[in-house]
Design a protein around this nucleic acid. Structure first.
Lengths: 138, 138
DNA sequence: TAAAACCTTGCCCTTAGGGCAAGGTCAAGC
DNA sequence: GCTTGACCTTGCCCTAAGGGCAAGGTTTTA
């Protein structure tokens, strides 16, 4: 039996995160002592570990909850997992492309900043950013 | 004279965003009519446009406020702007690298998912994510 | 003159927790 | 047995940048 602090440490999480996962329905509410302390068994560790891994892969808590719900309902969540992975893969590709476009824009803005500084030029707000073409957000 | 809705439309923003920028000190509080309506002059448009551009470059409202404050104090904000651009450029490079590492991890997880499906294999949560190595966040 | 379109403020919502407060509980040392 | 420190409980406010809604006032248009 472990308290929330111990189980969190075992899974590499904060106690607050563990409570949040419970509140969000990602993990089952554990037994409580008479005093109200949460008591976890070691069984909770792999589930928390899964949550951590899935988060590291960019899945949201909501998506992770969907996977876990499906699994708890006896279904095989593999299809959902692969769908989510595909979705996030495409999302990541989009974000990388956006960031690279933004990088180009930033570099152009930066180069103009240097040129303006050389000329002693100073516009409304330095004219550096006004001249930069609009791009996607980061 | 323009109402908040008109000035926002001119700058490509929502009225709420304009009010938010005022509350955050990015723009000066405009005059009010007797009824309390904000009344902007056309002078506000380039400032709002600057905010929009700077945001598109990934700057936070706080950073943009610092730039505008510096400019309003009579300083030339170019130095600050170039510093911020450099900082964000480095930040973007980090994020692109992180996302590319994440992409690799996701693809590995995805490939394992297919293999597991072929074998009819099903682990705690499909074993797809457990086997994926931890990576940086998106 | 009445309705539509606009404005005002204020509040709650979003992610994934962090931080703090007030108060209760457990384990170790003396 | 008692104290002390470490831990636990819930609850509230905070983050970034607004979106959405509500209740009520105003302006414009038909």
């Amino acid at each position: 039996m472990f308290t929330v602090g111990r189980i969190a440490a075992q899974a590499g999480l904060s106690p607050k995160a563990v409570r949040l996962y419970e509140a969000g329905g990602l993990i089952d509410p554990p037994e409580r002592t008479a005093a109200g302390y949460r008591t976890y068994t070691a069984d909770a560790v792999p589930v928390l570990g899964f949550i951590r891994q899935a988060q590291a892969l960019g899945l949201s808590l909501k998506e992770i909850k969907d996977i876990l719900d499906l699994q708890r309902s006896g279904e095989q969540p593999c299809g959902l997992v692969t769908d989510l992975l595909d979705k996030h893969l495409a999302d990541i590709d989009r974000r990388i492309a956006d960031l690279q476009a933004l990088r180009t824009t930033l570099q152009r803005a930066r180069a103009q900043a240097d040129q303006a500084a050389d000329r002693g030029d100073e516009a409304v707000v330095c004219r550096i950013i006004e001249n930069a073409a609009p791009t996607a957000e980061p």
